[in-house]
């Protein structure tokens, strides 16, 4: 395989990692000042901050590997919807606090397993980022899992809302475990695991937490897809980008 092809796949993989953290970080930051209790304002800001910091690392490396002189900021603020490689799950709207925390939990569980595997990546830079970010993500997971349990097994209302959130978001879980040629190349080079190989651990972890939360996983194998390949995002992503990218688009070439 030529060096050009391999850099292309590696770049795609890094965009997938960085776009997940960028888009989810953005979504979480939308809560600022509006959450149910002060401690949650602090925790959500902290989660968003971690995710944006992780984005700088992943997208920074993506630009470097791509080799076209793109900075993390260029990649974040100057690409259009079809260039984004995040999971559909993370671009889904915040909804109520329950939906936000359920989305966070479903992502954190995957993210923590993925980073655990990436710590032994054959690429040192990937391994270093995974090592650095896995502690933050372990904390995110602890927090989102606790909250899902607390609200799932709380009042009748909180239980119902959490079940609704799970029903709404579950069809977006399957995409995490789909593979394509990019993944095959990452596996071949020992850079990243086969997404499908994370499923068992994920199901065990998520199954255990959701059972403690007295919530029922929807009985469907159906999964939406199209985010991580860029083939078809949801309508939500474009609106997110119009807000996130506005200053850079309206005043191109400025330094901020």
């Amino acid at each position: 395989m030529s060096a050009a092809t391999s850099n292309e796949a590696f770049t795609q993989f890094l965009l997938r990692m960085g776009d997940n953290t960028l888009i989810l970080g953005h979504r979480v930051s939308e809560w600022c000042g509006h959450s149910p209790v002060l401690e949650e304002d602090i925790a959500l800001a902290n989660t968003a901050l971690d995710l944006i910091g992780q984005t700088q690392m992943w997208l920074g490396l993506a630009g470097e590997i791509e080799g076209k002189g793109q900075t993390a900021d260029n990649l974040a603020f100057l690409r259009d919807v079809w260039d984004f490689r995040n999971l559909l799950l993370v671009e889904m709207p915040n909804g109520d606090f329950g939906q936000t925390l359920m989305r966070q939990f479903l992502f954190d569980a995957w993210h923590s397993i993925q980073l655990g595997r990436l710590m032994s990546s054959s690429d040192e830079r990937v391994a270093a980022i995974a090592e650095k970010t896995s502690k933050e993500v372990a904390y995110h997971l602890e927090r989102s899992a606790d909250t899902v349990v607390g609200l799932g097994d709380g009042t009748e209302e909180s239980h119902a809302r959490m079940q609704d959130a799970l029903d709404y978001l579950w069809p977006y879980v399957g995409e995490m475990f789909q593979s394509d040629a990019v993944d095959a190349e990452m596996v071949a080079k020992g850079i990243a695991p086969d997404p499908a190989s994370l499923r068992e651990e994920y199901d065990a972890l998520v199954g255990r937490i959701l059972a403690t939360a007295t919530l029922t996983i929807p009985d469907t194998a159906f999964g939406h897809k199209g985010g991580r390949t860029g083939a078809m995002h949801t309508e939500h992503l474009g609106h997110l980008l119009t807000q996130m990218q506005w200053l850079q688009r309206a005043y191109p070439g400025s330094e901020w």
């Binding site: 509006h34 149910p36 329950g98 709380g154 909180s158």
Partner: peptide, 16 residues
Amino acid sequence: KAWKDGAWVRDGLLAH
């Protein structure tokens, strides 16, 4: 609005 919308969350966590 934040306080009102968050009531179910505070109640849920307290009940748990």
